[in-house]
Design a protein around this nucleic acid. Structure first.
Lengths: 222, 222
DNA sequence: TTTTATAATAATGTCGACAATTTGTCAGGG
DNA sequence: CCCTGACAAATTGTCGACATTATTATAAAA
C-alpha cells in the first residue's frame, strides 16, 4: 500500500490539501500500527527520508506528529523509537479508557439524536468489523462522538486510539472475546436507546473492564 | 524573562540538553499561557524567527510542540493560531478533568506512600500557591502523580494542563473561590490519608464540579 | 457599484548542506 | 582482562534558500 492510498482510505485528512509531511505521517502511522515497523525499533531519519524520497525536514515533521499521538518517543540528540508499552502501561490505558468512555456513554445517552442512534445501530449490525481499525467504523468512537464533547473526542482519537490499534494488531485482536463483546455492545446500545445515561456508563465501564481482564489473562499466560 | 530563564524555572526539561527548538517552545508556551501572545492571534513564523534569532526550522519545530499540547491550532498552508476556546469548550475540559482526576484520586488513595502523602500535605500548607502556575507545586498534579498511572499523568500534563493555566490567567484565577477550594483540598487530603478511594474520588469530582460551576457563573455574568 | 479575473505579495512547505552531539571503535594504561 | 580516553563515523539539530500555496491589491467587465 503506497503513500497516497492510506491517506484517501483514512478520511482524517482531505486528499487535496495534504502536505508531504502529512502523507509521510499517515504512512508511518499505518506502518507502525500494523507492526510493519516493529515496536521498540529505531526511526532512522536518513534511512526513511531515502525510502520515501522526501527531505529530512518533512520526515522530521512527520516524526513530530507521531510523537504527538504517542506512537514514538523522542530523545533529544538521540532520535525516535517506536513505543513499546509494558504490560502495566497497556493496562493503564484501559483504566483511562474506562473513565473516559464511561463518561462518553453517559453523555451520549443524553446528547445523541435519534438518527445518530440509528447510524450507531447500523454500525453495530456488521460488527464483524470489516474495517477493524478504521476509526470511522468503530462502535466505541461512535459513542465518543455522540458525547458531543470535542475535547474528549480529541483525547481518545489523537492520544489513545492509534496506540490501541497498534496493540490490537499485536495481540491478535482479542479474537476469543468477539461474540461476548458484541453482546455487551448491544446492551450499551439499548441503554442509549432508553436514554439511560447511568446504565450506559455502567455497562461501558464493565465492557472495557472485561476487555482489560481478558488482555490481562492473555498476557499472564505468555 | 528571557528564553533560558523559563527553561530552568520549568524543570520539565534539563538545562543542559535543551535544543533551540525546545527553548523556543518553552518561551512561547510561557508567553501564551500568560496571555502575552493573545488567544486567537496568529503565529507568524518569519516574525517570531526574527524575534528569537533562530531559523524557521527551529521555530516550526517549536510550533509543532505547541500544537501537540493544544496551545495552537495549525491549518495546512495557512499557519498556526493561538487557541481561543469557547465557553463550551472550556466547560468540556472541566468535564474531562472531573472524570480523569476523580479516577486519579481513587487510585492515589491506594497507591501513594505515606511519605508522598506527607509531601502532598506540605504542598497543601502553603496553598497561597506562591508559584500558582508551576505544575510541580500543584495539589491536583500531586494527586495525579500519586495515582501512579503514567498515561493519566501524561494526558493531564501534556494535553490539558497548559490550556488550563492559560485560562486561569485569563479569567483571573477564580480568586473568589480560593478559600473554599482550600477547604475542599483539605477534605480530599483527609480521604487520601484514610485510604478511602471511593470518598476521595467523590470529593475530587465535586471539587472540580464546583470549580466548573463557579467559572460557568462568571462566564454568564459577562 | 458590484463582481470577477488577474497579478503582486507574503506566508507556509520543502529541500540540501553545515554544525553539534552522540555512539561506536580502538589503542593505551592500570 | 577490564577500564579509560581519544578518535572516527554516523545521526540529530540548525540554517538559509527555493518552491508552492494562500492572501491581498488591482483592474477590467457586467
Amino acid at each position: 500500500m503506497g503513500l497516497v492510498d492510506y491517506c484517501v482510505d483514512n478520511n482524517r485528512f482531505g486528499y487535496g490539501a495534504m502536505s508531504i509531511a502529512e502523507k509521510v505521517f499517515a504512512a508511518l502511522c499505518n506502518a507502525i500500527v500494523r507492526g510493519e515497523i516493529p515496536a521498540g525499533s529505531k526511526i532512522s531519519e536518513p534511512e526513511l527520508a531515502g525510502h520515501f524520497n522526501v527531505s529530512r525536514a518533512s520526515l522530521r515533521d512527520a516524526i513530530g506528529r507521531l510523537e504527538a499521538c504517542n506512537l514514538v518517543i523522542r530523545r533529544p540528540n538521540v532520535g525516535a523509537r517506536v513505543v513499546s508499552l509494558s504490560d502495566e502501561e497497556l493496562l493503564e490505558i484501559y483504566a483511562v479508557r474506562e473513565a473516559l468512555e464511561g463518561m462518553a456513554a453517559r453523555q451520549a445517552a443524553v446528547q445523541m439524536s435519534d438518527t445518530e442512534l440509528d447510524e450507531l445501530q447500523l454500525l453495530l449490525a456488521d460488527d464483524k468489523q470489516r474495517h477493524p481499525n478504521d476509526i470511522n467504523n468503530d462502535f466505541h468512537y461512535g459513542i465518543v462522538k455522540g458525547s458531543k464533547n470535542n475535547r474528549l473526542k480529541h483525547i481518545l482519537r489523537d492520544d489513545l486510539y492509534h496506540l490501541m490499534c497498534m496493540y490490537r494488531y499485536q495481540l491478535g485482536r482479542e479474537g476469543g472475546r468477539a461474540s461476548s463483546a458484541a453482546k455487551e455492545h448491544a446492551l450499551i446500545m439499548d441503554a442509549l436507546r432508553d436514554r439511560d445515561g447511568e446504565l450506559a456508563e455502567l455497562l461501558m465501564r464493565r465492557h472495557i473492564r472485561l476487555s482489560r481482564q481478558y488482555i490481562e489473562k492473555s498476557l499472564n499466560s505468555l
